[in-house]
Amino acid sequence: MTTSTAATLANVVASPPSGRAKAVVFDHHEYAASVILRGHTVPWDNATAYAAFFSQAQGLLGPDIALLDLKRLYDHLTAGNTGLETAMAARSRTGYALRTLLADNDTNKAVLEFATVFAQTARQPVVLRIPSPMEWLIATHRFGGADNLGELVADDAENASMYVSDWLRAFAALPVAGLLLDNRAPDEGLGRVPVALEAYSPIANVTRNYRWTLGQLDDEQVRLQADTAVGGYIPPEFWLDPDVELPSADFYLAEIPRSARPEDVLLRLDALK
């Protein structure tokens, strides 16, 4: 099934709907949870309530994209799910745990319902963010009893991308503008296996068929497949210190820290114009 969207991430980068000179993708989760929810729990179990919370944050910041981080949703849905963890640990074969996670019917149903509400209520083009296949493989590898991440190689990532590409087909009917694979080093300090975006051809085939822009978040930059535009990360200090300058880039991804003050954020938003 081939779908099309009114805009792709590549289109947005080329011509930001916000009117900014350069498009900005905001990850405002931590900041919005602090400023809007004020200590209350993020409503992951109520997609409509989450969409309202997200929309309020978007209204404050005026981004060019609505970014849905499915890793955060997965972390919430799978926390304490001992049945799923047992199923993931049933085989030690590399990739078995990830394949089991992505094939879990209950989790898939909850994720698709959540993403559907989000996509249908978003006022900006929707971009999904997931771990890169290698990072997702590393994160689930321990369930099979494997402690040695050094045994993983780039070929394992390509195999993992086949599981991810099959899983992505569930989102075919949604108005998605792009998919970002998060390949950055995790905070937990888990092992790294360098894998280029080009290794994930099964995912590239799916996104090309659905006319989504495919990109990857590496430690230093954001790359879009078949596009010369290179994205840069706005440093957290930018929101805290007016003397911090923007890096050189064609577009930006900005994670606003929880500690940022709303009045300072508004001033720095003006600097982005």
Rank of each mutant, 00 (worst) to 15 (best):
A110I: 05
D45C: 02
A271H: 13
V244T: 14
L102H: 10
A226G: 05
V244S: 01
N205F: 00
T213E: 02
L180Y: 15
V153P: 06
R129H: 01
L240H: 13
Q120T: 07
G39I: 08
W167L: 03
D27E: 14
V193G: 04
A103H: 09
F251N: 02
R261L: 15
W239E: 00
D264I: 08
K273M: 11
R129F: 00
D264P: 05
V111E: 14
E245V: 03
R38D: 08
A170R: 11
A32C: 08
K273A: 09
I256N: 10
E151I: 10
A139C: 07
L266E: 15
P186D: 12
A14H: 12
L67T: 03
N159A: 14
T82N: 09
R123S: 03
R123G: 14
R208D: 14
S161I: 15
G231T: 11
D227V: 14
K109F: 12
F171V: 13
L214R: 12
D166S: 08
A170Y: 02
I138P: 12
F54E: 02
N108T: 04
T116G: 09
Y210K: 11
T3E: 14
E198N: 13
A196P: 08
E263A: 10
N159C: 05
P133R: 01
D250N: 15
W136E: 09
S132M: 11
D250S: 15
R99C: 04
Q124G: 01
N81C: 02
A119Q: 07
T207K: 07
L60K: 12
L190Q: 10
A122R: 03
R261C: 06
A254K: 09
P131F: 14
P262K: 06
F114V: 04
T107F: 00
L152E: 07
A57D: 05
N105H: 08
E113F: 00
V117D: 10
N11G: 02
R93F: 07
K71T: 10
S161F: 11
A271W: 06
E135N: 00
H40I: 06
S15V: 10
